[in-house]
């Protein structure tokens, strides 16, 4: 599903965010990306999302070489991916329903279809009753789950998460992680960037460890 071949990323200021990274994540696989802050986790996810382009090397998603995607192709690439952020990036000027519906509306789904899918996604994260609420009125954990619902509402083949449990206490973190495992069991490829080593080691999944832009370790913890 994701393939990195000798990928390096140097930012214009001269900072090397990634150095010669190579790994493959198979379809249906679930993996963690870990390392200190500044180790390059976010940069790696940004390369997959085409928010950044690599300085050297090749990134492929679903056998498409991302270097061949022009600026105009980027939106269509992103529609196949679901992303969850640490700061959830919810919009507070609209309801929970409208937040989750956004990716579907952008992709041009029929309104009736949108309703069904949004409720299905809300059901999966256990917040069906909060449909009409404003995200502001929800707890941090609930907001994060709304963010996850928005990431999976269009049933992406690939789900990326950047520190999805960053602001949450251990119990909530475990709940969120079990949600990701649930999606993975249904066939979604999942890649989660997290520095919560204790939590990751309990999960027993493949873990890619980054250190100063290098891939230090690749294996189960």
């Amino acid at each position: 599903m994701i393939q990195f071949e000798n990928v390096s990323k140097r930012y214009p200021e001269g900072h090397d965010a990634l150095r010669d990274i190579s790994f493959t994540l198979d379809r249906g696989e679930m993996a963690f990306l870990t390392g200190h802050s500044g180790a390059g986790k976010s940069t790696l996810l940004k390369l997959i999302m085409l928010m950044e382009r690599p300085t050297r090397g090749q990134v492929s998603v679903a056998h498409h070489d991302l270097a061949q995607f022009s600026r105009d192709d980027i939106p269509y690439h992103r529609r196949r991916i679901g992303v969850v952020f640490q700061n959830h990036q919810l919009l507070f000027d609209r309801s929970v329903f409208e937040n989750i519906a956004l990716p579907l509306q952008i992709s041009g789904y029929e309104p009736e279809d949108v309703g069904k899918r949004v409720r299905a996604a809300l059901d999966k994260v256990g917040l069906l009753s909060k449909e009409k609420h404003n995200p502001v009125a929800l707890s941090t954990g609930e907001q994060q789950r709304i963010g996850i619902a928005r990431a999976i509402v269009h049933k992406p083949q690939l789900l990326l998460a950047d520190e999805p449990t960053g602001n949450l206490d251990p119990t909530l973190s475990a709940e969120i992680m079990s949600l990701f495992m649930e999606f993975n069991r249904h066939g979604t490829t999942v890649l989660i960037a997290s520095h919560d080593l204790a939590l990751i080691s309990r999960m027993g999944h493949r873990t890619l460890t980054l250190d100063q832009g290098r891939l230090l370790r690749d294996g189960r913890t």
């Binding site: 382009r53 090749q58 270097a67 995607f69 192709d73 529609r79 992709s107 789904y109 049933k155």
Partner: peptide, 26 residues
Amino acid sequence: MAGREPVKRGAERQQRPTRSSEAPAT
């Protein structure tokens, strides 16, 4: 970064309407 092949990019473009409006489940 590998060189971009215009032919393949064209092919990508043609797929777009299908990809953008097609429900992934169908």
